[in-house]
Design a binder for these strands. Structure first.
Lengths: 125, 125
DNA sequence: TTTCATACTGACCAGTTGGTAACCATGACC
DNA sequence: GGTCATGGTTACCAACTGGTCAGTATGAAA
């Protein structure tokens, strides 16, 4: 069970969907786009997600080359997660998805039920 | 159980992902982008998918406003599935996903394992 | 020695998804 | 009455996903 990487779909669009899909991946990525984050920070930023699942999602993204994991041997231990260049390159794709999601909500008369696309937390406010 | 529509995620990007994700939705949509298709045609175009799942995916997309289903009361019966305007509006999004999927494959040294993005079947050839 | 923070891991479980295989209804045609 | 094509449905099942909850390891600090 060392290689958890299951062959990704050969159709590029399906491959992309497989890599991006995951209950919390978009949210986590949005936070990582803003800079490296520790596990404990992410837990605070996304309180709804359990620790196990958070790590699960991060590890999958690491496997798929979207996220870099760096361990600092301090005490208490520090682990930083950051978006790789490949991960960063997902930002416009996620934006496209977000905009389409808004259009979709609009055309189904549920526009009030969705948020906006700029959910990247600003450092200051 | 009349309304099968389960509330979609309120985060637009997740909403989009939920609507697009589905083992065969991208493939089916690509075929529908080219024009209306009968169920039997789609079965022939995507032989790997079983009839039950094909209908399942089509119905979900119908619910989500991506696909229109029209019944012609002939004998034998004819049913045509076509992409709605909302469905058509997914084309650039799927293209973005496809291009990113290729980049992803490339950076992971698996470029030979993915196809290209122009999988829309041409009428002629 | 107990406690604390950090970052995990493992057992277990329920819901969703995709899949197979079989069956149903209609009406033409022989 | 069979047979065919079309466009379904149904029962059943296995795998995957996300979820809870409890446990582990390290080393400093009290």
């Amino acid at each position: 069970m060392t290689d958890i990487i299951k062959r990704l779909p050969s159709l590029p669009s399906e491959r992309a969907l497989k890599v991006i899909s995951g209950r919390w991946k978009a949210v986590i990525l949005y936070h990582l786009f803003d800079g490296p984050r520790r596990l404990s920070q992410l837990r605070r930023l996304v309180p709804a997600i359990s620790q196990k699942v958070l790590i699960q999602q991060l590890r999958e993204m690491e496997e798929h080359g979207l996220v870099h994991r760096e361990i600092f041997r301090e005490v208490p231990p520090r682990v930083e997660y950051s978006a790789t260049a490949l991960g960063q390159s997902l930002e416009p794709v996620l934006l496209a998805l977000c905009e389409w999601g808004q259009r979709h909500a609009q055309e189904l008369g549920e526009f009030d039920q969705v948020g906006d696309c700029i959910i990247r937390p600003r450092q200051g406010a």
